[in-house]
Amino acid sequence: MPRSDPAPHRPAWYFPEYTPVGIDLGSTSAVAAYDRNQGTDPDADDALLDRLEVAEGSHLVDLACGTGSLAVQAARRGAVAHGVDVSEEMLASAQARSERFGVAPHWHHAGFLDYSHSGPLVDVVTTKSALHQLPDFWKQQALLKAAGMLRPGGTFYLWDVIFAFGPTSAEEHLQQWIDTEGRPEGEGFTRADFEAHVRDEFSTYSWIIEGMLQRAGFDIVSSTSPRPTHAEFRCRRR
């Protein structure tokens, strides 16, 4: 499985992207639990790929690809798919998934900040449930990197824990999210998982993300917040 070398020559002040925040995914069992808790669904992946007009011959990069479901589904429809992740355990799971389906996406051991795409500019870049692992300064750098690998007019898709509520009601909404979404161990992400997300990870407000996307060179085509704690952005590279 081809992989790039993880950040071999970064300065000492660079964000330690290979040191996980939040949920520890350093074991096979943890990766399997994460995949189960995320609710990986090939049909949902296909529906998203349809919306993003990914077809045979399209070039797609999925940043922080996790266990590779989206990249595998893209490859199954004939796209040239690349999956990028900092977790070797995730990539091993992604490789196993691709072998089960008889496809061969390109897997890269790399992160938002150090992935260097070779080859032609791509049609679509996606990232789901992962950008929150970077502080806001580094989110902006990651979005600039994503824009740099997209052809003009190409699509950038973002789904994440992004806060649509106002700052004055943050405590109320966050507590409600934790109280409502936490599940017993083995049945999904637990209350402690959500508490750790709020405490240790770097989710931010939708209005901050909007500004970052625009400054990275994207026009926002559509944005939705199906609930106060999550948002989706579909953007076009200028």
Rank of each mutant, 00 (worst) to 15 (best):
G102E: 06
G211P: 05
A71V: 02
V72F: 00
F165L: 02
Q141V: 12
T224A: 11
T67Q: 02
A79M: 02
D45H: 10
A12R: 10
H173S: 06
P2N: 12
P8Y: 09
A142Y: 03
P8I: 15
R77V: 01
A71S: 14
L52M: 01
P152N: 12
P20H: 07
I162M: 04
S116F: 08
R236E: 05
T28S: 09
A147W: 05
A104C: 11
P120D: 07
A147K: 12
F137M: 09
E53K: 11
E53A: 14
E187C: 03
T40C: 06
V21T: 08
T28M: 02
F156N: 07
S206R: 15
L113H: 10
A7P: 00
I209R: 03
R236K: 14
V86H: 04
T127I: 00
E187R: 10
S93P: 02
W207S: 11
F202G: 03
L49M: 02
Y18F: 15
H230W: 11
A146F: 00
Q140N: 10
S87F: 04
R10V: 10
G22V: 06
H197C: 09
Q214N: 08
Y18Q: 01
G182Q: 06
Q140A: 14
F233A: 04
P8A: 11
F101R: 04
Y115W: 14
E171K: 12
L25I: 09
P228K: 09
A32P: 04
